[in-house]
Design a protein around this nucleic acid. Structure first.
Length: 638
RNA sequence: GCCGGCGUAGCUCAGUCGGUAGAGCAGCUGAUUCGUAAUCAGCAGGUCAGCGGUUCAAUUCCGCUCGCCGGCUCCA
């Protein structure tokens, strides 16, 4: 007799030891059909598991988010089964569920995406067969016998100490796995293999190169299609495509990983930084600038020479070694250290738009998202210990103001002391407490990543969410207990003694190049007016009106508009189409009526046209939109 | 850096089972003068990424180099 308690506190008693499936069916047949797994006393289990003793049981149905994770894991097994059928010599390693899908690392001949369809066909057969998925527990020695020809699995088993060792069987296939899994392979209704790449066994370059096959799966075709549409939408927004289509930036073989910004890209860039400077000025920051290239001794002192040298560009001048800065902080330390400081001056908030170079591996470069030369919107804040909470709170408020201007939402994550770290327990406690209390005072929820901090201090990371729901880590606020020590920085306290200042590094955009790329994708190239490289374009409907349009252009330039004129002998339709493809927010068609009445006809990117707008109204609306940095494009809404 | 894929006109792409290339768009010239997403015609445009090898002949086959794309963090 076992007594089962459900999440809603209702109870049910069963004779013998029922399986999860028995219990689910006792609720209703329909419910049981939707169940994929369960939790017994908060531990995940298969529906086929027997409930041995009184327990709290929660069923996981296809509506629960965990169900997808289980589905992914089962789909990985289905894929592995299909591959073993098709490639006899393949040796399985690991195959976890990941965000948005799953992968399996397999030691096998190299395959390409062209091989996907035949694997998918085999997977479909396995799904259709609806093989029941059964769990069995074996001893370590039994497992070793079972896997005598599977070197990778043997290695994994040898690392399992104390845990129960379980296998999952479906048809002729069996795999070492913790589970849980779906009741049968028939649940894997909608799946797709997405990519293949190389990966190393145990992520170690010196070990066997494996094939990593990625896939995704859903409980219905509809959800799969939705996900594939999302990928398609992301592809359309790709900043590398839009960057060249909209003439914003480019890359050249002569400087791999180092972007060139075009005139139009620079309009956006400069707007971004003008805004950034306004906000920082208002928040009490000063701006500094330090050299790009500094003497080796500085990098030895900062610790970069020892820890970061592989990523640094170096050069020898007059027999002396220099390094191009990969970070701005050591230069910032020199500025602080050049004269004594009083406790009354603190906090000092020294911002720096610093250009840094980092020699990233060639294979990781990716558009503006991963580059070798970029600018950080850095700031180094020097303060007294009693100012930590207030300063962090101030940064969080600044972060919120800036991101919201772009219509970006964000969440915060706190990373605490890692195993390998410098500084005393007391310092860490004070620093972490400072961050934590600032976060608490700020009020929004935050996630804690235990042990994920930098070796020199705890940090808060800011993750933004873009228009199609993707998240990006941009901002970071890091307490640094190392550099002030290394550079022997101090301030004179009220007690007339020397004290070590607390230092934080923080960025909000992070890499300006990367943030630029994120904005391109976030807005899909349709920038709000204040950021748009070109505000408006004049489109005379015939050549005779070109002169008048040209006068308007000069007049509008004087009003501070970024204005262009399309006076080609093309049809109006053609000019509109081209302006539309260039994502120019405002198209001003100039015809006879506009000249006679001195008004404007304004077409916006959504295709709507407003006639008879006075010049005055047009300028007012544009100026208000630009000045208030409205995040939407429609100048006729407020 | 490693694995796999790719590199043909400014862009998107076709093509050559080895006999030195073709379309659309963009550009230029001319005609057209147009009221809200492509007017028409003509012209021009290429060391087929670079270097080397095989061959009577290489853009094509082979090797190397460079660059780009997808991965290389997710742990049975």
């Amino acid at each position: 007799m076992v007594n089962i308690t459900f999440p809603d506190k209702t109870k049910k008693s069963f004779e013998n030891n029922p399986t999860g499936f028995d219990v689910a069916k006792s609720i209703s047949e329909g419910f049981a059909r939707n169940c994929v797994a369960m939790e017994i006393d908060a531990k995940p289990a298969d529906l086929s598991s027997k409930i041995q003793h009184d327990a709290n049981v929660r069923f996981i149905t296809t509506n629960d988010s965990e169900a997808l994770h289980i589905l992914h894991h089962t789909a990985a097994h289905v894929m592995a089964q299909a591959i073993l059928r098709l490639y006899k010599d393949a040796k399985l390693t690991i195959g976890p569920a990941i965000e948005n899908g799953f992968y399996y690392d397999i030691d096998m001949e190299s395959i390409s995406e062209e091989d996907f369809s035949k694997i998918e066909v085999e997977m479909k057969k396995i799904v259709k067969a609806r093989y029941p998925i059964k769990r069995r527990v074996v001893s370590k020695s039994e497992a070793q016998v079972l896997y005598k020809d599977e070197p990778y699995k043997l290695e994994m088993i040898s690392e399992l100490n104390g845990q129960e060792i379980s296998f999952y069987d479906q048809g002729e296939f069996t795999d070492l796995c913790r589970g849980p899994h779906l009741p049968d392979t028939g649940f894997v209704k909608a799946f797709k293999l997405t990519k293949v790449s190389g990966a190393y066994w145990r992520a170690d370059q010196n070990r066997q190169q494996l094939q990593r096959l990625y896939g995704t799966a859903f409980f219905s075709k509809k959800e799969l299609d939705k996900y594939l549409n999302f990928l398609e939408e992301a592809r359309k927004r790709d900043h590398r495509k839009l960057g060249s289509a909209l003439d914003l930036f480019s890359f050249h073989d002569e400087a791999p990983g180092m972007p060139f910004f075009h005139a139009r890209g620079m309009e956006l860039w400069n707007e971004l930084l003008t805004y950034w400077r306004e906000e920082h000025c208002a928040a009490g920051y000063v701006e500094t600038k330090t050299p790009i290239m500094l003497h080796k001794s500085l990098w030895e002192r900062s610790g970069h020479w020892e820890n970061y040298r592989e990523n640094m560009y170096t050069t020898v001048v007059d027999d002396t070694e220099y390094a191009i800065k990969p970070m701005n902080c050591p230069g910032g330390m020199l500025l602080y250290g050049m004269r004594p400081h009083s406790y009354k001056e603190l906090p000092i908030r020294a911002a720096e738009i610093g250009m840094v170079h980092r020699h990233e591996l060639s294979g990781v470069l990716s558009g503006l998202f991963r580059v070798r030369a970029f600018h950080q919107d850095d700031a180094h804040i020097f303060m007294r210990p009693d100012q930590i909470q207030q300063e962090i709170l101030g940064i969080l408020q600044l972060v919120e103001r800036i991101y919201s201007t772009f219509g970006l939402t964000f969440h915060l994550e706190l990373s605490t002391r890692p195993d390998k770290s410098i500084g005393s327990d007391q310092q860490w406690e004070m620093a972490t407490k400072g961050l934590r209390s600032a976060l608490d005072e700020y009020g929004n929820d935050y996630k804690i990543n235990e042990g994920d901090g930098a070796f020199y201090g705890p940090k808060i990371d800011v993750h933004i969410k873009d228009a199609i729901g993707r998240t990006w880590q941009c901002g970071t606020i890091q307490l640094d207990m190392s550099l002030p020590e290394r550079f022997n920085l101090h301030y004179i306290g009220q007690d007339n003694e020397r004290h070590r200042p607390i230092m934080i590094h923080r960025v909000i955009f992070g890499s300006i190049e990367r943030f630029f790329g994120i904005l391109v994708e976030h807005f899909a190239g349709k920038f709000p007016l204040w950021l748009a490289p070109v505000h408006a374009i004049l489109l005379p409907i015939n050549d005779e009106l070109a002169n008048y349009a040209s006068e308007l252009k000069v007049m509008m330039q004087k009003q501070g508009l970024r204005i262009e004129l399309d006076d080609r002998s093309e049809s109006l339709k053609k000019k509109i189409r081209d302006a539309q493809l260039n994502q120019i927010p405002l198209m001003l068609t100039i015809g006879e009526k506009e000249r006679e009445n001195g008004t404007l006809a304004i077409r916006t990117l959504d295709g709507t046209v407003k006639y008879g707008i006075s010049h005055e109204e047009f300028f007012n609306r544009v100026h208000i939109h630009v000045r208030l940095r409205k995040p939407h494009l429609d100048i006729f809404s407020d």
